[in-house]
Simulated scan of single mutants.
Amino acid sequence: MTQPPSQIQQRKTREAQARRDHIFAVVKALIKQGGAREVTIRKVAQEAGFSTTVVYSLFKDKATLITRAMDDDLLALVGVMKNAAAVSADPLQRLRLAGHAYVRFGLAHPDEYALVFMEPRPHAPVEAAEVQHGNAEQDPYAFAHGLLQALAVECLGFVFKDGVLSSDDARKVHLMTQIFWQGLHGLVSLHIVMGEDDPWAPYIAPQTGVDAMLDVLIAGLFQRFRVAAG
């Protein structure tokens, strides 16, 4: 029978997590100041008050460090999308609800959104993240892909054969997912960058914009990807 962790082990676990959280906060602050180019293991260690040995013992390189700093934000995003979509079983409505939740999250957390989706950075292998790649419970892209696959099968005439889509249909679902994501990202990123007082374009409230954009995106998906009858 496995013994529960001792109080000393629990304290060490809490202290290790506190070190990681502090390091992640430093990474995000450096990126906000000057982009990912500001992040080096040496600078993070100096700002966090640790030796470079401590930081290297937790994260093998800069790419892994930045990737791990994004984990909580990705989990938070997929959480709000899941919760929003959960109130409906209709694939179209679930897509709309998740889209609205994505936009609300991005505009409510502009710094976190910019770190994850607007900052060029080195890429670590997917295994370096605590977020499990392809797990719709943790990975926002995988969750969105599941929504679009349900739409494709239930509304657009895609058909599973032996439990899977054909390779061509699977590719189309990824294309649909990325079109959907690109539309949402464009709206969020423009609002983050331009704000309400940019003189070059009249301000349109995000709620109005996302309603219209989802109408256009969904109509376009039906027009482009619906399987012809017969």
Rank of each mutant, 00 (worst) to 15 (best):
R37E: 15
L65Q: 00
A86P: 06
A101E: 08
H100Q: 12
T2M: 01
G163F: 05
A101D: 05
L190P: 06
F158K: 10
V87N: 13
P199T: 05
G157I: 10
V55N: 04
P125F: 09
H191Y: 13
A86H: 12
A129N: 01
F158D: 06
P140D: 03
L165M: 15
A36C: 02
Q182W: 14
P122C: 14
R94E: 06
P5Q: 10
T40W: 00
G49T: 03
L74N: 03
G230T: 12
V126N: 07
Q33K: 15
A86S: 14
A114Q: 12
F180W: 13
Q149E: 05
P5N: 06
L95N: 05
G157D: 07
L148P: 03
D21H: 04
Q207V: 04
A150T: 12
V131F: 04
H123I: 13
G157L: 06
A205C: 05
A205S: 08
D197W: 13
A84K: 07
D139S: 05
F160L: 12
V44A: 09
L95A: 14
A36I: 08
S51E: 07
A114N: 09
L77N: 00
G209Y: 03
A101Y: 01
K43V: 02
V44P: 00
I204A: 13
G35W: 15
G186Q: 13
R94F: 11
G35A: 14
Q93I: 09
H100T: 08
I31T: 05
F180I: 01
L74H: 00
E196W: 02
K43L: 11
F117Y: 13
S189T: 15
V54L: 06
R96H: 06
V44G: 02
L92F: 05
G209D: 09
E137Y: 03
N135P: 02
A219K: 15
F105A: 08
A128E: 08
V39M: 03
G134D: 07
H133Q: 08
V78G: 04
I204T: 09
I23E: 04
A152L: 01
R96T: 11
Q3H: 11
Y203N: 01
S189E: 15
